[in-house]
Amino acid sequence: MAENICFFAFAGLTLLAACTVVFARQPLYSVLSLLVVMFSLAALFVMLGAYLVAALQVLLYAGAVLVLFLFVMMLLNLEPEALARMRLFTLRGAGLVVGLAIALLLIAIVRRGGLAGTWQAAEGTVESLGTVLLRYYVLPFELTSFLILAAIIGAVSLAKIKHH
C-alpha cells in the first residue's frame, strides 16, 4: 500500500514537473523543474531496486548536467521566450497532436502487451552492477570514455571559434 502511494506520488510529481519544464516561460523555472523531475525519477529508480542508477541520476544529471545548463543560461542572459508568431501555430499544434498521439499509441501498446507480470529480484548495487559492467560490457564501457573525450574536445573547439 505504501508502495502504491509512493509510486503515484512520485509519478504525479514527475509529470507535473515535466509539464512545468515544457510550458514555463522563464527558462530558469524550466531548469529547476527539470531538477524536480530528476529527483523524483531517482526515487522511482530506488523503488525499482536500481540504487546505483539512482545515485548516478542525482550526481550526474542533477549535479552536473543541470548545473551546466544553469551556467550557460546565466552566461547568455536569456530573455523570457516571446509568444509564438501566428504562422507557426500550425506547426506547434501539429507537434501537440503528434505528441499526444504517440503517448496514446504507446499506452495502447503497453495495454495490449499484458505486461503486468511479477517483479523479479534485480538489485542494482554498486557491486552487482560493477560486476556486470566490467565483466560483460568492458568494451562499450571503455568506448564511452572515448565518447566523452571527443565531446570535451568538440565542446572546447566549438567554444573557441572567434566571432568574425
Partner: peptide, 22 residues
C-alpha cells in the same frame, strides 16, 4: 530549414510505424 519541421516529419513516421505495430 526549421528543425521542428523535420522533427515533425520524423514523428509522423513514428506514428505510422506505431500504428502499424498496433
Amino acid at each position: 530549414g526549421r528543425v521542428q519541421t523535420y522533427v515533425l516529419g520524423f514523428l509522423l513516421g513514428i506514428v505510422s510505424l506505431l500504428t502499424l505495430a498496433l
